[in-house]
Nucleic acid binder design. Structure first.
Lengths: 215, 215
DNA sequence: ATGGTTGGATAGTGACACTCCCCAAGGAGA
DNA sequence: TCTCCTTGGGGAGTGTCACTATCCAACCAT
């Protein structure tokens, strides 16, 4: 198929597809002549993933490019590729300060205490290297600055809930047969499950709130 | 204290504070003369909440204004105010289509089935009116369009996990004594817990992934 | 041959948070 | 009193970023 059809099939405007091509998010079609290229199903699929990353995940284009780069990097094994791709995903706002203020230090202590309590040894080893770890520290520090003293005691139950969710996530990824698809699924899941979880969370809050206090 | 000091205490630049005043996010200080106004601790606190809404929550200024308006609306009871404030919080991207396509219809069916299965009667009554409900449908529809057939069977365990989280959320809000603070806490929690939960989720995925496949 | 389509590039749009700059009115020290 | 500095107020500008409009030369199908 050609550009026009690709646009129609994917629901993405022609100009936008050109933009993605220019930005290196979408691989060029196979050139059939100097002015024509042929696209296939993989491009449709990739376009949908791109839309998911940008619209749902809210990634900046540059980040999406890196993520997709890892997904495509056939020189790496699945686990590495998956980790690398997820590694690039957004980790919340960067700390304005350099992480040297009091709230951040306290947050770091609480996070370490939490990891020890949970026995998450692997993550503890990686420590500050993991964006997720860093962003957890930042988030807890923000809470503390606003006056909410979240400690490891309060966090632990939430962490265990999220661990149960993570087990399900990986089970879900396992259901896909091909290695290539697994990586893509893991990325898509990380991006797309977030709004689902968030909506479920909000719905659950509404339900529970109604149960306690009525409408 | 005056503007300069408020700026220093809150870490928000003078120009930005003026911008927030102009946008109606921050109440003007009490005028002590035609060219001078006095600010107090409540302004510092409010500024931090504003920063949380904008930076952490990523709300547009107009939305933040509405949310804060509900927080301040003393004419309403707590439950209503809390609900109204949370109601305004962002509910993911608006659907491009008008919700009439096939994927959206299928998603709606699955969501309804899920709510029935869970016995979340209250939310079911509100139905489409709730932004959370709508955004769940949109999210599930997006997943389906990408080829991941999430049904109520798969969602239910996640929903129950999030319900447990919601119970904890409300317990946490209950620990605050004053009604005023409860509303503010609920809003802050909805905004600030999200990055915490997300980071915990990501960390849990890393831990579980390392357990299964090694580093 | 001719009108439409393709890939390619440049410049522009619109939304948004934020910031610069200028103004007039005080307040404080000479 | 005069003068300098700060204050609050407001209009206009900045930078960013995804996206779009427009133009161009090449080329394919009718």
């Amino acid at each position: 198929m050609r550009l026009a059809e690709l646009s129609e099939r994917s629901g993405v405007s022609l100009a936008t597809i050109k933009y993605y091509l220019r930005q290196g998010l979408l691989a060029p079609g196979s050139r059939v002549s100097a002015t024509t290229a042929e696209y296939d199903e993989s491009h449709v699929r990739r376009l949908r993933l791109i839309r998911a990353l940008l619209q749902v995940g809210g990634l900046p284009v540059a980040t999406a490019r890196k993520v997709l780069g890892h997904v495509d990097d056939a020189s790496l094994g699945r686990t590495i590729r998956m980790g690398a791709a997820l590694w690039e995903l957004p980790h919340g706002p960067d700390p304005d300060d350099d992480g040297k203020d009091e709230a951040t230090a306290a947050a770091r202590v609480e996070v370490d205490r939490l990891l020890e309590k949970l026995g998450w040894g692997t993550v503890r080893e990686i420590g500050e290297l993991s964006p997720a770890h860093r962003s957890l520290v930042v988030a807890v520090a923000t809470l503390r600055r606003l006056g909410y003293a979240w400690d490891s005691e309060l966090m632990a139950p939430y962490a265990e809930l999220m661990h149960q969710a993570a087990v399900r996530d990986l089970d879900f990824v396992e259901t896909h047969p091909s290695e290539e698809e697994k990586v893509e699924t893991a990325v898509a899941a990380a991006i797309l499950f977030r709004p689902v979880l968030e909506a479920l969370h909000r719905l659950a809050q509404e339900e529970e709130s109604a149960r306690r206090y009525g409408l």
